[in-house]
Write a protein that binds this DNA or RNA. Structure first.
Lengths: 128, 128
DNA sequence: TCTTGACTTGAAGTTGGCTCTAAATGTTAT
DNA sequence: ATAACATTTAGAGCCAACTTCAAGTCAAGA
């Protein structure tokens, strides 16, 4: 698969794909005889994974670390697991914080809704 | 309250507090005769609000817009409400996405846990 | 009075994560 | 075979959100 095809498939710009490869998020992308990338399904799985994790805010350097460990075989399984657990816990905290803010926003919006009613009452007063 | 006190109270650097004021996130901070900020409780409420919203990822320009509208009185209540609803909905989406990623990470971690067991079995085989 | 430390400003610098540019080479359709 | 488009690279540029810097003012304590 060429870069433009992968770009469409995952809705990531070709620039971003090259950048991700450059910062070691997508290992072992092969080239044809003219130096043009030919993405494998394996590459695509990494791209999908990275896109998902980046969407949740995991930093690039952490993901690069994970990818690097994955390239090093079974000896790094424990380190990879610890990395994932750490990132999962951080993500959990962020989600927790955002949910609290979500509730606060909901409450504030409700307050604005109640704020409109007294205004309508005032309007009624004027009409009386 | 001076800037250093507010800084401690909300765990935001003095630089960040000045920056927030500069980009219109904290309206009407009064100064003493020497030009030094004397934060009011009203200022602090904005700081707390802004800190919370920034923590959830709401962008500064949107918050500045909200603050500006708030300064303009009752005529902007509807606009403020719409702004909050829009940001709430965006936040909801981000939380949703992050929760899905959280589940994926949980699943992956479980897989790593299961991956360790077969290795122990192999070890047992060798020992037999 | 001198020094220490908090405060002031505007502007420049930093970080993370892309995004764009230029110049060259490759590919495809007519 | 030539036009039009895709891909390559290194490096520059960009954006959000701070953060640091330089150069100065001001207040309190030894």
């Amino acid at each position: 698969m060429k870069i433009s095809e992968v770009s469409k498939r995952y809705d990531l710009s070709a620039d971003t794909l090259r950048y991700y490869e450059h910062v070691k998020l997508i290992p072992g992308v092969p080239r044809n005889k003219n130096g043009i990338r030919e993405y494998t399904e394996e590459n695509c799985k990494w791209i999908e994974f990275v896109k998902c994790m980046r969407g949740a805010g995991l930093p690039i350097d952490v993901l690069a670390q994970y990818v690097t460990l994955s390239q090093q075989g079974d000896a790094t399984i424990d380190a990879r697991k610890r990395l994932l657990i750490e990132q999962r816990d951080l993500l959990k905290q962020r989600v927790q914080e955002m949910q609290e803010t979500l509730q606060r926003l909901d409450y504030k919006i409700k307050t604005y809704e109640k704020l409109v009613l007294p205004k309508e009452k005032e309007l009624n007063k004027e009409e009386l």
